[in-house]
Amino acid sequence: MTGNCQIRSELVQLIQAAIHCRGKASQMASSLKIDRTSFWRKLKQFNIHLADYKVG
């Protein structure tokens, strides 16, 4: 169960960052304190599309 909790926590953090940063990749990676390569890998892993969070 611990693995599932960690994965869910990562997913929640990514979604919260996407909402807060309005889908801006650089700001999201910076706020999560991860490098851009890892950031893009996680987006792909969780099937998160930044366009869904962009405003305007």
Rank of each mutant, 00 (worst) to 15 (best):
S9V: 10
L14A: 07
H49D: 15
S26H: 12
R41D: 12
C5K: 06
A25D: 05
A17R: 01
S26D: 11
Q27V: 06
R36G: 09
R22N: 12
K44A: 11
Q6W: 03
Q6H: 09
S38L: 11
C21V: 02
D52K: 04
W40L: 08
S31L: 02
V12A: 11
I15D: 08
H49I: 00
T2F: 08
Q45W: 07
S31K: 10
T2I: 13
Y53F: 07
L50K: 04
A29C: 07
L32W: 01
S9M: 14
F39R: 07
M1H: 11
I48L: 05
G23K: 00
L50I: 10
S30L: 07
T2M: 08
M28Y: 04
S38Q: 12
Q6A: 01
A17V: 00
L43C: 08
G23A: 01
A25Q: 13
A51M: 02
R22Y: 06
R36F: 06
K54G: 02
T2Q: 12
S31N: 06
R22E: 14
K24S: 15
R8D: 15
G3R: 05
M1S: 10
R36S: 12
G3D: 10
D35N: 09
C21T: 14
H49L: 11
G56K: 04
A51S: 10
A17Y: 00
L32Q: 01
M1P: 02
C21W: 05
K44N: 01
A17K: 01
T2D: 14
L14R: 06
Q6N: 04
S30W: 10
F39D: 09
R41Q: 09
